[in-house]
Amino acid sequence: MKLSDFSEPALTRQLAGEGLVLHTGPFSVHVRTTMSSVVQGLSILYRDYDVSHMQGYADFHVQLVAGGGLRRWYKPQVRFLFDGFAPFKPLPLDQAFPMFEWGLNWCVANHMHNCLILHAAVVERGGYAVVLPAPPGSGKSTLCAALVTRGWRLLSDELTIVSLDDGTIVPLPRPVGLKNHSIAVMKAFAPHCTVGNETRDTNKGTVAHMRAPRQSVEQALTPARVGWVVFPTYQSGAPARLEKLGKAGAFMRVVQNAFNFNVVGVKGFDVLKGIIDDCACYEFSYGQLEQAMDVFDSLAASRVAEKPAQKTA
């Protein structure tokens, strides 16, 4: 069944009671909460996802609960619990939904050491994925959000999961995080996209999440090969510029953006070497989303012209 099969009152009851298992990419997450902002966020942003009753097994068991202590009377807080244990400090109550998203990222990054995990957005077209590794503030999420409203498939906006078996990307399509002015930028760029409620004054500023395209969610079990690694930088007013990057340098920059390169050891090195061998690496700066879309369209076209997406690892 889909999450949209629940009316909001039914969803509220379910999440307050035994909870609901949400299936996102390869993960099943058992969610329980009584917080209305989380229920609302889920019903807006996760309506296309498969859900099931808690029967037997879930990868992660999470809860969002009100913070205890005296503070609850004058400054209510929310806590993220991973199976009863709080990996983070509590946050102000109105940040409950973003905390759910951040908490889920934590679950994945901390438990999936059988994969190489990069801090990068990743989208796919024509069978090839573009990995966009970048530190916060580089415009990576905005670029990713824009691309997925223009026919690219969302694999992930924050955590790029690389299989150590064959170097393909394991999709984890979840809502795309937008910050500060990029929220308005996206609403203007793609008026039909659905953006959830804004949360102000988080430590990242104002945040909101954009719903992942339905097709991306439905294709969550189809992996993709890496065609390009592109390091984006947003520069206000700058023309879109794509510059070829030396592979050794690109390799090192991907490593700097990996969460667990030292954990995956030799396997990680070999897999990443294979990826860099087979893909093209670029530095990309842009000031306008429309121009950026053109550049990525021609990237995708070049790969199609070059050879059909048939090669296997």
Binding site: D59, H111, M112, H113, N114, N262, V263, V264, G265
Partner: peptide
């Protein structure tokens, strides 16, 4: 898969 992951972590 989580046991394998835990193994990777212990090896590292």
């Amino acid at each position: 898969k989580y046991l394998d992951a835990a193994n990777m972590l212990a090896d590292a």
